[in-house]
Design a protein around this nucleic acid. Sequence first.
DNA 1: GCCGATTTGTCCGTATGTATC
DNA 2: CGATACATACGGACAAATCGG
Lengths: 241, 241
Amino acid sequence: MPKAKYDQIYRDLKEKIETEVYSYQEMLPSEHMLVREYGCSRNTVRRALAELTADGYVQPMHGKGVRNIFRPVEQAAFTVGGIESFKESSARNKRKGTTQVLQFAEIIADEKIEKRTGFRKGICLYYIQRLRFLNGIPLILDHNYFLKEAVPGLTPEIASQSIYDYLEGTLGITITTSKRTLTVEHVTQIDEKYIDLKDYNCMAVITSQTFDDNGIQFEYTQSRHHPDFFRFQDVATRKTH
Amino acid sequence: MPKAKYDQIYRDLKEKIETEVYSYQEMLPSEHMLVREYGCSRNTVRRALAELTADGYVQPMHGKGVRNIFRPVEQAAFTVGGIESFKESSARNKRKGTTQVLQFAEIIADEKIEKRTGFRKGICLYYIQRLRFLNGIPLILDHNYFLKEAVPGLTPEIASQSIYDYLEGTLGITITTSKRTLTVEHVTQIDEKYIDLKDYNCMAVITSQTFDDNGIQFEYTQSRHHPDFFRFQDVATRKTH
DNA sequence: GCCGATTTGTCCGTATGTATC
DNA sequence: CGATACATACGGACAAATCGG
């Protein structure tokens, strides 16, 4: 938990927006006011506001002020957003998440794997297949590839709990960046075997390459979601052309 | 095209990374070096680097340096990323995009529409249905709702070209923020009527609420994509817990 | 282990530009 | 026109992490 001043301000403003201390479309106090309120420099206030802007919470308007454009979202499905473990996502979506390990193996990357995952050929990887349950219903099928040298000592036992807890807690790895691609793909035999898709013949597929704070890619994951329980959210800002 | 100094530096570094002047996993010059190279302050360099970090191009490492973690992506499908018009996306994906307007109507928002789109009940909207072709093949079906008072004078003729060109060019609107949700949904009768989905019974659906620089939501769009020609990309960074 | 040099991270105060009212 | 508000930029200071001697 960072104790940086800008982060404190960011969290404080974020909560005020979420709890409607400032209502939708209302202006926040000016930067000058916030400087006085928080007893810091203008740069620091601006940094907090920049993060809220990136989150889609506020919109700064040149010469006018900063407007609250946040609206709460209904959480009907299983919402995916930032980098989160399944455990964290389950908690945020207020569901009980459990995991069943279907496969756990050590493999050597060949050319096909290199092309798909970004791991160099010849490198030793853990390959793990896991089935994810929400409130007892199997909804997500994960195929994980972990770089063995970066993530030593992985066991099926750990995989059935939270690998991220192990990485961040026990190994002290800092997870930093995740590049994700989202596609819609036909169901496979494995999907059908474990997940009741009713009449869907597709799944929502997130593939991600995850990096630690040394810029080393230690994970490639393909996460296949039941369409009825999948929702991906995003805020984009337009770049000038 | 902003002529801000940090933006120049950002673009310059971005191009150097893309053209592999710095190769994958290589360190960029230190901030101090960049300051000398560009003749600016350290803050300005840092701002450019912050944007590259958000793009997933580099990863700064405390006490060590800034590492290039960019890898070119193969463009097999139709890649969706930031806020773009169909025209812009087509060009970026190197495809010829054309548009057929299926419906063009003025409607008044009722409660159902309010709940779905975020436009208040009673407000006057343009409703537009458009079929998008890539290289002559129909692949995307768009349902647009535009706030009439914010986007006056829209015509089917404009809708068959680029509405964004009209908004930004003729009307002088600045498009700023877009909140998007991505789901996988069953095909509808309309989908099937216009798009050849082969044996897919799902589509990739992006719904977006778009705001101008006054924080006014002027657009709600549901964009339904053929699975074979859909790919959404994203870079996430992990927040400390 | 310690120290100093280097590098990134945070924060401040100030100045100037530009848009709005 | 002046006052207010956000945008950009500079230079400096200190902290924290890393690395080499």
